[in-house]
């Protein structure tokens, strides 16, 4: 059992690291696109790793399935929100400025 717990701790800590990095990135990165990049890493990988970590503690199959389902929903919603914000920002920024930022 302690072996399984170790897996949980490792994965959850890894997830927490991604959340921390995502938050720092959101606060520190210079423009909206790199901030979105940081934010979606926290959402997708951070939540995913925590879900994987918690899967070791699940006692029934359906609970685990629900958790994976929640993760996939968060993936879909997160990437869409990122796309929507990014697209809005991209359309609002004058073209030359965007090209500068991407170079």
């Amino acid at each position: 059992m302690s072996f399984v717990n170790a897996f949980t701790i490792i994965f959850c800590l890894a997830g927490a690291v991604f959340f921390l990095a995502g938050t720092v990135g959101l606060l520190r990165f210079p423009d909206i696109f790199s901030r979105l990049h940081a934010l979606t890493k926290a959402d997708n990988l951070g939540l995913g790793l925590i879900v994987i970590g918690l899967l070791f503690q699940v006692d029934s199959f359906s609970t685990g399935l629900k958790m994976l389902f929640i993760w996939s929903l968060a993936l879909a919603a997160g990437s869409n929100a990122c796309y929507a914000i990014g697209r809005y920002a991209f359309l609002r920024t004058p073209r030359e400025k965007t090209r500068e930022a991407s170079e």
């Binding site: 929903l73 879909a76 919603a77 869409n80 796309y83 929507a84 697209r87």
Partner: peptide, 16 residues
């Protein structure tokens, strides 16, 4: 129009 992704997402998500 919000672009193709949102429309795709909502088509998939509405039943769920």
């Amino acid at each position: 129009p919000p672009g193709p992704l949102l429309s795709w997402l909502i088509r998939g998500l509405a039943p769920v």
